[in-house]
């Protein structure tokens, strides 16, 4: 372990703590995850390609990625508004709202799933008012969108909020003094500052939504080719003991997650270097 050290230190415990951390993490995470790739390599390329481009799989990607993207964009808009309102305005109940924004993180996904279904079902709290208008939410792709929007809610708020807090008001004052109206100041001064954080938040909400399972399956209706998300398709294949099918789709999802995680890291790096330049 000590060979890895770049500079000597008087502090104890390096070998012990790093050794334990690496051992534990490899055992729990790295070895099992790499097993997924090893398992895929037992499939021929044609077999793999057939599984991952099968019409049912393609329809599930379309729904999963489409609904995740729309949900993340909706959260981009409303998340920015919520962050703005929380940072800039004082109103009663503000600290309660601030604490509650994280509810979708803390609430188990199964609870979110059955609750959203109960609300948006045709006889539900909100669903009964949408039904006469001809809008069906539960058990349709729209239900998937609702669930994925719910679980992505905190991300944009929590990435935009700290940037807004650190924003120097003097720059805005200067803009106003130079004759800009509020909207111009917002577009030319505030938005460029928020942009990296906003994109990071949207990307995080999207990444979370793509893999989401628990909150979606209750409200989705789970009709193959129509309202079936990819994680559910993996689950179905597993239940039918179609391990190769589940593995191939799992690898696709895992690669997407890696690419998204990389993109988020780059976005975070971009926004932190922007901050350092100032």
């Amino acid at each position: 372990m000590h060979l890895l050290l770049k500079q000597p230190s008087v502090l104890p415990g390096f070998g012990l703590t790093l050794g334990f951390a690496l051992f534990y993490f490899s055992l729990i995470v790295l070895i099992p995850l790499s097993g997924l790739f090893v398992r895929t390599s037992t499939l021929s390329w044609e077999q793999f390609w057939d599984i991952v481009t099968n019409p049912r799989a393609m329809a599930s990607y379309q729904l999963t990625f489409g609904a995740s993207l729309v949900g993340a964009l909706v959260n981009g808009i409303f998340g920015s508004i919520i962050a703005w309102v929380l940072v800039r305005y004082r109103f009663s109940g503000r600290s309660l709202v601030d604490a509650l924004v994280d509810l979708p993180f803390a609430l188990p996904t199964a609870v979110a799933g059955i609750t959203l279904t109960a609300i948006y079902a045709p006889n539900g709290w909100i669903g009964r008012y949408l039904e006469p208008l001809g809008i069906k939410v539960a058990f349709t792709p729209l239900g998937v969108l609702i669930a994925l929007t719910f679980i992505g809610l905190p991300f944009v708020v929590r990435t935009v909020q700290p940037v807004l807090q650190d924003l120097d008001k003097e720059v805005e004052e200067a803009a106003t003094m130079l004759g800009a109206n509020r909207w111009q100041t917002f577009r030319a001064v505030i938005v460029p500052e928020l942009w990296p954080a906003l994109l990071t938040g949207i990307a995080m909400a999207f990444a979370r939504a793509v893999g989401e399972y628990g909150s979606v399956i209750f409200i989705a209706g789970n009709m193959p080719l129509k309202s079936e998300i990819t994680p559910l398709l993996i689950m179905t294949k597993l239940e039918q003991y179609d391990y190769s099918g589940a593995t191939a789709l799992g690898v696709v999802m895992l690669l997407v997650s890696f690419v998204l995680a990389l993109a988020i890291n780059l976005l975070q790096w971009w926004s932190s270097t922007r901050h350092m330049q100032q």
Binding site: L4, L5, F25, P32, L36, I234, Y243, G250, L254, S257
Partner: peptide
Amino acid sequence: FEFVGKQALITLIDMPLAVSPVISGLIYVL
């Protein structure tokens, strides 16, 4: 401590959060 591969380890630790829960179960079934 400063050691080789530190940044990679920090990134790796967050990985389970990026993986779909279904895949987290799938790998143990495999």
